[in-house]
Write a protein that binds this DNA or RNA. Structure first.
Lengths: 222, 222
DNA sequence: CGGAATCCTCTTCGATACTG
DNA sequence: CAGTATCGAAGAGGATTCCG
């Protein structure tokens, strides 16, 4: 069966023909921070069901957005990762994240909460400020999971795993990072309250610079 | 019945909870160029069905993205328009459009084709170059429908209707504009082939500047 | 463990017809 | 025109099972 299409010769419609179905962009979000195994994806997409995940992955593979690979030893696990075309969806996710940040109030009852989602939100906040930022690398330890954000040449990369030689290591809870990224809490508040703290820092200014980049969102988004 | 939600405390998921359903972002695309009546929306979203359009509009109204208004006299028609929150979705549409441009080949058999979609695609191309651009206004007459693009202070606005005092008026066919916006055809080619032409211009350089802004995409997107 | 396939129920979609 | 009502078709989603 051919997939459903809007049947419009339009750039936006064509994009949505490919990545507009339910779960698809969240699947891309999961892969944005690095390759993932099938069961990792299942865990990051609560409620999707194995059949649907299989179907989406197959469609994305056919469209050249996702690729199956085997991780180098000693891992050796079969994983899914984004192709270049898939990674070029990053600006879409970033804008969605920035828009969604304004709608994100307090967690509702029984809503899932994962460290990786805070990493994506942080990435979209830094993205807005990266143009005027110096080259810098931050490591985030969010509820035990480790990510790093590299800011360089106006671009931003957020990936899972530790950074080598980070300028700053920040430790905190998922909800605190999300509250800051969504502009619900000023970064200094979070630091003062102890829900976010610098654990290692190359120089004292690194934390200040990091917080300054997170700052504009708090005031900017209405 | 509450609407379906991913149930994730995540900025991206929250955005998709609101605008992730089928047709919703295309509906926003339609309103991006200005207020529209119900039947205009139906015409711009072939295949949607009246019940679904009604439902989507109602949901968007409840979420503060769309507002019902009456156009000032002599029009006096009931229309739907974007709120500020709705308009802030523009970056999302722009990025989707830029991503989709790379996938947009030649029109497939029986695909719909509307002038307004070319206007949206043009807007997303200009958006990338607006930061370094001077203040300028272009009027586009696409298969008889009139739009204008205003570039000012790094921002871009694309709306339906004529511009007052445009620096340049460009006339052409929908498909030609889309081919250029998608990078399938270099702007000078389109001009040489006569499928796009300047009908009025404040100075001779206006067309050159306009084409230069359209140029980088042709080479940039694979 | 990593997935694919099946079954069943529910919701949503999409097209048409109908009403204020 | 601007919607509501209706109904068959398609997709979502949860459980379970099978296979390598």
């Amino acid at each position: 069966m051919g997939k459903r299409s809007y049947g419009q010769y339009c750039t936006v419609a064509r994009a949505l023909d490919v990545i507009g179905e339910r779960w698809t962009l969240l699947l891309v979000r999961e892969l944005l921070t690095g390759p993932k195994r099938f069961k990792d994806l299942l865990a990051g997409l609560p409620g999707i069901g194995t059949n649907l995940l299989t179907g989406r992955l197959k469609a994305l593979e056919e469209d050249g957005i996702v690729r199956r690979t085997v991780l180098p030893p000693p891992a050796g696990s079969r994983v899914y990762e984004l192709t270049d075309l898939g990674r070029s969806l990053e600006p879409v996710i970033v804008e969605l994240s920035r828009w969604g940040a304004g709608l994100l109030g307090a967690p509702r009852g029984e809503e899932d909460l994962r460290p990786a989602w805070a990493a994506v939100a942080l990435r979209s906040v830094f993205d807005a400020e990266a143009a005027s930022a110096p080259k810098e690398t931050y490591e985030f330890r969010i509820d035990g999971e480790v990510f790093h954000v590299r800011i360089e040449g106006g671009g931003v990369e957020a990936r899972q795993g530790p950074a080598d030689d980070p300028d700053l290591v920040v430790v905190g809870a998922t909800e605190a990072f999300l509250a800051v990224a969504a502009g619900r809490m000023r970064p200094e508040e979070a630091v003062e309250a102890g829900s976010i703290r610098a654990s290692e820092s190359r120089d004292d200014d690194a934390l200040v610079r990091c917080l300054e980049m997170l700052q504009p969102v708090a005031s900017g988004s209405g």
